[in-house]
Amino acid sequence: MAEQFVGKASEFKDGDRQIVRIGEQEIGIFKHEGEFYAYSNFCLHQGGPACEGLTIARVEERLRDDKTSMGLHFTNDMNFVCPWHGYEYDMKTGEHVSNRKIKLRKYNIVQKGNDVYVIA
Protein backbone atom coordinates (compact mmCIF):
# COMPACT_ATOMS: atom_id res chain seq x y z
CA MET A 1 0.00 0.00 0.00
CA ALA A 2 1.50 3.27 -1.12
CA GLU A 3 0.34 6.82 -1.36
CA GLN A 4 -0.64 7.65 -4.91
CA PHE A 5 -1.05 11.25 -5.96
CA VAL A 6 -4.46 11.73 -7.55
CA GLY A 7 -4.80 15.47 -7.88
CA LYS A 8 -4.83 18.88 -6.32
CA ALA A 9 -7.45 19.57 -3.66
CA SER A 10 -8.15 22.93 -5.28
CA GLU A 11 -9.17 21.12 -8.49
CA PHE A 12 -12.02 19.36 -6.68
CA LYS A 13 -15.18 21.36 -6.13
CA ASP A 14 -17.72 20.04 -3.68
CA GLY A 15 -19.68 17.30 -5.43
CA ASP A 16 -16.94 16.58 -7.97
CA ARG A 17 -15.76 13.07 -8.66
CA GLN A 18 -12.71 11.55 -10.27
CA ILE A 19 -12.25 7.99 -11.46
CA VAL A 20 -8.66 6.78 -11.48
CA ARG A 21 -6.94 3.54 -12.35
CA ILE A 22 -4.08 2.47 -10.10
CA GLY A 23 -2.59 -0.78 -11.27
CA GLU A 24 -5.54 -3.11 -11.61
CA GLN A 25 -7.80 -1.13 -9.32
CA GLU A 26 -10.36 1.44 -10.40
CA ILE A 27 -11.14 3.95 -7.71
CA GLY A 28 -13.79 6.63 -7.49
CA ILE A 29 -12.79 9.70 -5.48
CA PHE A 30 -15.59 11.92 -4.22
CA LYS A 31 -15.51 15.31 -2.60
CA HIS A 32 -18.57 15.68 -0.46
CA GLU A 33 -19.14 18.45 2.08
CA GLY A 34 -15.43 19.27 2.06
CA GLU A 35 -14.32 15.70 2.77
CA PHE A 36 -12.72 13.22 0.37
CA TYR A 37 -13.99 9.66 0.05
CA ALA A 38 -12.58 6.92 -2.17
CA TYR A 39 -14.24 3.62 -3.07
CA SER A 40 -13.71 0.77 -5.46
CA ASN A 41 -15.46 1.53 -8.75
CA PHE A 42 -16.60 -2.08 -9.12
CA CYS A 43 -20.20 -2.54 -8.00
CA LEU A 44 -20.75 -5.48 -5.66
CA HIS A 45 -23.79 -6.52 -7.65
CA GLN A 46 -22.43 -7.20 -11.12
CA GLY A 47 -19.23 -5.17 -11.33
CA GLY A 48 -20.76 -2.04 -12.83
CA PRO A 49 -19.10 1.37 -12.49
CA ALA A 50 -20.47 1.98 -9.01
CA CYS A 51 -19.01 5.46 -8.55
CA GLU A 52 -20.17 6.91 -11.86
CA GLY A 53 -23.91 7.08 -11.42
CA LEU A 54 -26.23 9.59 -9.83
CA THR A 55 -25.52 11.10 -6.47
CA ILE A 56 -28.81 11.49 -4.71
CA ALA A 57 -29.98 12.39 -1.23
CA ARG A 58 -31.40 9.52 0.79
CA VAL A 59 -35.19 9.34 0.68
CA GLU A 60 -37.07 8.64 3.86
CA GLU A 61 -40.77 8.37 4.57
CA ARG A 62 -41.98 10.47 7.46
CA LEU A 63 -44.79 9.09 9.59
CA ARG A 64 -47.16 10.74 11.98
CA ASP A 65 -47.67 9.31 15.47
CA ASP A 66 -50.56 7.18 14.22
CA LYS A 67 -48.22 5.81 11.50
CA THR A 68 -49.97 7.51 8.58
CA SER A 69 -47.51 8.66 5.98
CA MET A 70 -46.52 12.27 5.53
CA GLY A 71 -44.85 11.41 2.26
CA LEU A 72 -41.30 10.87 1.13
CA HIS A 73 -38.60 13.41 1.82
CA PHE A 74 -34.96 13.87 0.96
CA THR A 75 -32.60 13.82 3.93
CA ASN A 76 -29.20 15.49 4.11
CA ASP A 77 -27.37 12.15 3.76
CA MET A 78 -26.00 11.58 0.30
CA ASN A 79 -25.84 8.31 -1.60
CA PHE A 80 -24.38 7.34 -4.94
CA VAL A 81 -26.06 4.92 -7.29
CA CYS A 82 -24.50 2.39 -9.64
CA PRO A 83 -25.81 3.27 -13.11
CA TRP A 84 -26.22 -0.35 -14.18
CA HIS A 85 -28.83 -1.69 -11.79
CA GLY A 86 -29.30 0.98 -9.17
CA TYR A 87 -27.30 -0.43 -6.26
CA GLU A 88 -27.18 2.49 -3.87
CA TYR A 89 -24.25 3.14 -1.53
CA ASP A 90 -23.76 5.46 1.40
CA MET A 91 -21.37 8.28 0.51
CA LYS A 92 -19.68 8.32 3.91
CA THR A 93 -19.24 4.59 4.48
CA GLY A 94 -19.62 2.82 1.13
CA GLU A 95 -22.27 0.54 2.62
CA HIS A 96 -25.22 -0.61 0.57
CA VAL A 97 -28.18 1.38 1.87
CA SER A 98 -30.55 -1.51 2.36
CA ASN A 99 -28.02 -4.14 3.45
CA ARG A 100 -25.25 -2.66 5.57
CA LYS A 101 -23.28 -5.88 5.46
CA ILE A 102 -22.52 -5.24 1.81
CA LYS A 103 -19.81 -2.66 1.56
CA LEU A 104 -17.65 -1.26 -1.21
CA ARG A 105 -13.92 -1.40 -0.61
CA LYS A 106 -12.92 1.90 0.93
CA TYR A 107 -9.55 3.55 0.33
CA ASN A 108 -8.00 6.00 2.71
CA ILE A 109 -7.31 9.48 1.49
CA VAL A 110 -4.41 11.56 2.71
CA GLN A 111 -4.27 15.27 2.09
CA LYS A 112 -0.87 16.96 2.32
CA GLY A 113 -1.32 20.64 1.76
CA ASN A 114 -3.00 20.98 -1.59
CA ASP A 115 -2.09 17.46 -2.73
CA VAL A 116 -4.52 14.59 -2.48
CA TYR A 117 -3.24 11.03 -2.20
CA VAL A 118 -5.11 7.78 -2.17
CA ILE A 119 -3.56 4.85 -0.32
CA ALA A 120 -3.78 1.89 -2.69
Binding site: A2, Q4, F5, K13, R17, G23, A120
Partner: peptide
Protein backbone atom coordinates in the same frame (compact mmCIF):
# COMPACT_ATOMS: atom_id res chain seq x y z
CA UNK B 1 6.80 -1.81 -9.79
CA UNK B 2 5.24 1.57 -8.85
CA UNK B 3 1.64 1.56 -10.08
CA UNK B 4 0.75 4.37 -12.41
CA UNK B 5 -2.21 6.58 -11.62
CA UNK B 6 -4.28 7.02 -14.70
CA UNK B 7 -7.18 9.45 -14.55
CA UNK B 8 -10.05 7.76 -16.36
CA UNK B 9 -12.63 10.52 -16.08
CA UNK B 10 -13.63 13.57 -14.14
CA UNK B 11 -17.28 13.92 -13.26
CA UNK B 12 -18.18 17.47 -12.25
CA UNK B 13 -20.83 18.16 -9.65
CA UNK B 14 -24.30 18.78 -11.03
Amino acid sequence: KAPQVEILRRIPAA
